[in-house]
Amino acid sequence: MRALLVVNPAATTTSARTRDVLIHALASDLKLEVATTEYRGHARDLARQAAEGGEIELVVALGGDGTVNEVVNGLLHNGPALDSLPGLAVVPGGSTNVFARALGLPNDAVEATGALLTALHERSERTVGLGLAGAVPGSDDEGAPARWFTFCAGFGFDAGVVGRVEQQRERGKRSTHALYIRQMVRQFLGDPHRRHGTITLERPGEEPIENLALSIICNTAPWTYLGNRPVYAAPGASFDTALDVLGLRHLSSAAMTRYATQLLISSPERGPKGKHAVTLHDLTDFTLHSQAPLPFQMDGDHLGLRKSVKFTGVRRALRVIV
Rank of each mutant, 00 (worst) to 15 (best):
T127P: 04
Q187T: 03
L264E: 02
T118D: 10
H302V: 07
E70Q: 14
P293W: 07
R40C: 09
H193D: 11
Q49N: 13
L294K: 00
A237C: 05
E202S: 15
E142P: 05
E38V: 07
V98R: 01
F296T: 04
R169Q: 13
S15T: 15
E170P: 06
L22R: 00
A135I: 15
I265L: 10
R174C: 12
L117A: 05
P80F: 01
A35L: 13
D141N: 10
G104P: 07
P137W: 00
G104T: 08
H24N: 14
A16W: 12
P208V: 14
S253G: 11
Q168E: 13
D158W: 02
M1Q: 15
S28R: 14
L88V: 09
E70D: 12
L264A: 14
S252E: 02
F239C: 06
G63D: 09
G247H: 00
I265H: 11
P208K: 07
E38P: 01
R164K: 13
A237P: 03
A254F: 12
K275I: 01
R316A: 08
A10P: 06
R174K: 07
V322W: 10
S124Q: 15
G131I: 00
G197Y: 02
I217Y: 03
V165N: 00
K31S: 14
N97Q: 10
L288F: 03
E52W: 06
L280K: 03
A159S: 05
K173A: 15
L62Y: 02
E206N: 15
T287N: 09
V314W: 00
V128M: 01
D244M: 03
R203N: 15
T113W: 10
E122Q: 06
S238E: 10
Q262W: 12
I181P: 01
D108Y: 12
T118H: 14
A102T: 02
V60K: 03
P145H: 04
T257V: 15
G41Q: 12
M184L: 11
G163Q: 08
T198F: 12
E210M: 15
N97C: 03
A3R: 01
K31E: 12
I56P: 13
F155C: 03
